[in-house]
């Protein structure tokens, strides 16, 4: 606690806190739709383009934000179009573009100013990067993103889940694509200087992936991603201050920790969930209850379910009573279900 109070006595850290929280929140919310639509690479591509644009701007002597925001927005449109058309393999195309943008940035910098600390801070982030203007922009951006999710969450869900169906239902899908692209571009340009071009895409990807391990509903995933992103950012920044580690990398490591933690929790939960009936038919009839009573206690042993099924079948004299038969039936249904599990 005293560490946090100490941190908040520095104005630049307060700015970093506010700006970072806003940006991680935006990145996480947009990340849910990007990850689910298999556009995760776009975040990575955009950060590299943003790096290229920033280095060119610095080399020419312009102020970085007004140059890089439009360039990155254009790149976002372009990347979305490639992905939608599907003419070129989109992941390969994005990898190509990001590498090219990075190369342009590096060549331009080495020809003019040389590899200074400035460039290094763009690559790996600097906690000093947040200016007052950046913080204002971040607050506006997150207000827009939160507003969008509050008002259009059902439409965002529909577009994310099934673009073709939404088109047929008369939802303006390209409008949502454009809005997502623009907001993602601005988020990445703003966050890049604090998190670093190499690491910013993790803010987009990690919270969504982590939440998907545990949450079964879209609403749950969205809420969890937002909260998780803010919590991870705060822990990461505090750790970075306490142990003098780079801010961006610390936040990413905290996110990784959360991901592993959620993965572990999912494994523990899944053992329990396996025993819930999924097919409507399996819920009816006494057989299922008998099945549960009979085999349930052994469920704690942590064996694979299929082993349990065979064990159960051999344990009961086959067909000895209707109940046993029905129980076997229930298990069979469940066994089939487990087999289908990808």
């Amino acid at each position: 606690m005293s560490v946090i109070l100490e941190m908040l006595s520095y104005p630049f850290l307060v700015r970093a806190f506010i700006g970072g929280i806003m940006i991680s929140l935006c990145a996480a919310l947009l990340g849910v739709t990007l990850v689910l639509r298999r556009y995760s690479m776009i975040g990575d591509g955009l950060s590299h383009v943003s790096f290229g644009a920033l280095s060119v701007a610095v080399a020419v002597g312009w102020s970085p934000l007004p140059v890089s925001i439009p360039v990155v927005i254009l790149a976002a449109f372009f990347l979305l179009r490639i992905t939608e058309n599907g003419k070129m393999k989109s992941d390969a195309a994005i990898a190509m573009i990001s590498a090219s943008a990075l190369a342009i940035g590096i060549v331009v910098t080495s020809l003019t100013t040389g590899m200074t600390t400035d460039v290094s801070s763009y690559m790996f982030g600097s906690i000093l990067a947040m200016s007052k203007g950046d913080v204002c922009l971040a607050v506006v951006l997150s207000a827009v993103v939160l507003g969008l999710f509050a008002v259009c969450r059902h439409r965002i869900f529909a577009v994310t889940f099934d673009e073709n169906f939404s088109k047929a239902a008369g939802i303006n899908v390209s409008f949502y694509n454009i809005v997502t692209a623009v907001l993602t571009a601005v988020t990445i340009v703003l966050g890049m200087r604090m998190m670093g071009a190499m690491l910013i895409s993790s803010l987009v990807i990690f919270p969504a992936l982590t939440s998907m391990r545990l949450f079964k509903s879209f609403r749950g995933v969205v809420w969890s991603s937002g909260i998780l992103a803010v919590v991870c950012f705060c822990i990461g920044i505090t750790a970075s201050y306490a142990f003098s580690t780079p801010a961006g990398a610390s936040v990413v490591l905290v996110n990784l920790g959360a991901f592993l933690l959620f993965g572990l929790a999912e494994r523990m939960l899944r053992k329990r969930i396996r025993w819930q009936p999924l097919r409507p038919g399996a819920r009816q009839g006494t057989g299922y209850a008998g099945d549960r009573r009979g085999v349930g206690p052994r469920g704690g042993s942590g064996k694979m379910p299929r082993q349990k099924i065979t064990a159960g079948r051999h344990g009961n004299p086959a067909g000895a009573s209707d109940k046993a038969a029905a129980a076997a039936d229930g298990r069979e249904k469940q066994g089939g279900r487990t087999d289908n599990d990808p």
Binding site: A158, F161, D162, S166, A168, G170, K216, S217, F218
Partner: peptide, 30 residues
């Protein structure tokens, strides 16, 4: 009223975190 449409399933849908209720309800958006 529009036409009800059952598109080809995409790979992304098969592991989509959504409840059945959320999916069905999204059909009424129009």
């Amino acid at each position: 009223t529009g036409i009800g449409y059952l598109p080809q399933q995409t790979a992304a849908q098969r592991d989509f975190p959504a409840t059945v209720w959320e999916v069905v309800l999204s059909g009424t958006l129009n």
